[in-house]
């Protein structure tokens, strides 16, 4: 499998799956303001997905489109981080998941703006503005809820305890990452860790939340070897129309 294709699917699948997850809040978010803000973020992420997967399809060279990759692949072909396929849970879990993702996504995109692959640099340059806003919003929400009421603090701490083991996957490199780093297409994932940990700790201390001690990190999402059961359920909903009515359009 072509390493660049794999890498592009990892970027595009993570934004696609997280975008779909956030869109599940549409119409039932806890307040009107969030009901608009969350789908805005979902649309940003799905817009980024279109760019990543369109390029992935070109690199693959098998005549597929971005839509084919998004709607016609099954669980084992997806390369998203395990973090983003976690169910929405309560609002605290959604915001914590978003924050842990954004805190990686933003510096990753910043690094990709200097990629040796011009197309990747261009996609990153466009996406980084959106990711900057996502990070600002989710990190301030983590502070507001963590340092909020007794109930919001308790919910945020348990969300963090639940989701922290999924944060590490993005920083563990494999052969695909090595090849991308060797050709200066993308940074080595581990090099982003120190800044990530520092920014997460900074926000969590403002939020009066405690980072779990354990460093264990679930793996298997970005390699596609071990997705959780949640991804299949998500795909049945996201892909049902193209599966029930192949090639349907409006």
């Amino acid at each position: 499998m072509d390493a660049k294709f794999e890498f592009l699917c990892r970027m595009g699948d993570s934004t696609l799956i997280l975008g779909h997850r956030i869109s599940e809040w549409c119409g039932k978010a806890p307040v009107l303001e969030e009901d608009i803000a969350l789908p805005n973020i979902a649309l940003d992420l799905i817009g980024q997905t279109q760019m990543w997967l369109a390029y992935a399809a070109e690199v693959e060279g098998a005549g597929h489109t971005a839509d084919d990759l998004a709607m016609r692949r099954d669980v084992w072909d997806f390369r998203n981080l395990l973090l983003v396929e976690r169910p929405n849970g309560d609002f605290a879990q959604t915001m914590t998941r978003q924050f842990l993702f954004d805190a990686w996504h933003l510096p990753m995109l910043q690094a990709l703006t200097t990629s040796s692959d011009k197309r990747i640099a261009e996609i990153a340059a466009k996406a980084v503005k959106e990711a900057t806003y996502h990070y600002e919003k989710s990190s301030e929400m983590v502070v507001a809820l963590g340092d909020g009421t007794e109930e919001s603090h308790a919910r945020m701490q348990s969300a963090l305890d639940l989701l922290w083991p999924f944060a590490g996957e993005a920083f563990v490199s494999d052969t695909v990452d090595h090849e991308m780093a060797a050709t200066s297409v993308a940074p080595t994932p581990e090099t982003l860790w120190d800044d990530y940990e520092a920014s997460v700790k900074d926000i969590l201390s403002r939020a009066t939340l405690t980072l779990p001690k354990a460093r264990f990190a679930h793996k298997g999402g970005k390699s596609g070897t071990m997705h959780s059961e949640h991804l299949g359920h998500l795909l049945t909903q996201m892909q049902w129309l193209q599966r029930a009515y192949p090639d349907a359009r409006w």
Partner: peptide
């Protein structure tokens, strides 16, 4: 008008809404 926990959040919500 809209609801927000503080002024900065109000600016962000206004941007979104």
């Amino acid at each position: 008008s809209l609801h927000a926990q503080d002024a900065d959040a109000a600016v962000r919500n206004a941007r979104d809404v």
